[in-house]
Amino acid sequence: MRKDVRIGVPTERATRKGRAFGLRDVLVTLGIALLIVGVVFAFNRSKGLKEGSFVSANVLAGGLAAGPAPTLGKAAPDFEVPLLNGETFRLNEHRGHVVWINFWATWCPPCRAEMPDIEQVWRSEQGSDLVIVAVDYAETTAKVQAFVDKLGLTFPIALDRDGQVGTQYRLAGFPSHFFVDRQGILREVRVGLLSEATMRATLQKLRSY
């Protein structure tokens, strides 16, 4: 038998003269892999790997000088702010109460929109262990007073004039809600407007701790 073959177009088979990736190569590869793991591990031990260069907006706003960031399940950072009625509010004085800290500003539409609902909850909770403090972020007393009068709000409004508390609490947006239980532990953080139902549900949950 004689054979005579002509392939019109060179296929990859024509080039497939080299050895394929054999078992030995696999072993060598794994060896090198281990070596690389070792090198990176050593480098990691000595220098530490970069955890990404991302700087979150709240860290940017706060920097490191603002003290520890609020963390769920840990004690809420203490602060002291003047209230609109001239008194002073200090968080740590309210152990034994559930505390709802609301950060807002008059130029923030959802903050304004939820105010009547907060008022509603506040009125229905008269005489309970609920403490509300709505901290206005860096605005003048006159401006805040005018707004509060218009809406007839009766819950405590605080003035964070230089934005220090907001920075300390690493605000990412308005409105922000921080819920602190009777032991002073931060239990819930909510960014964005809350419905009245959500407010009540969150408070109920807060009392269960």
Binding site: A33, V39, V40, N44, K50, G52
Partner: peptide, 10 residues
């Protein structure tokens, strides 16, 4: 990030 570094190196 550890594996990423190893991949970058390789």
């Amino acid at each position: 990030s550890f594996f990423f570094m190893a991949a970058l190196l390789s």
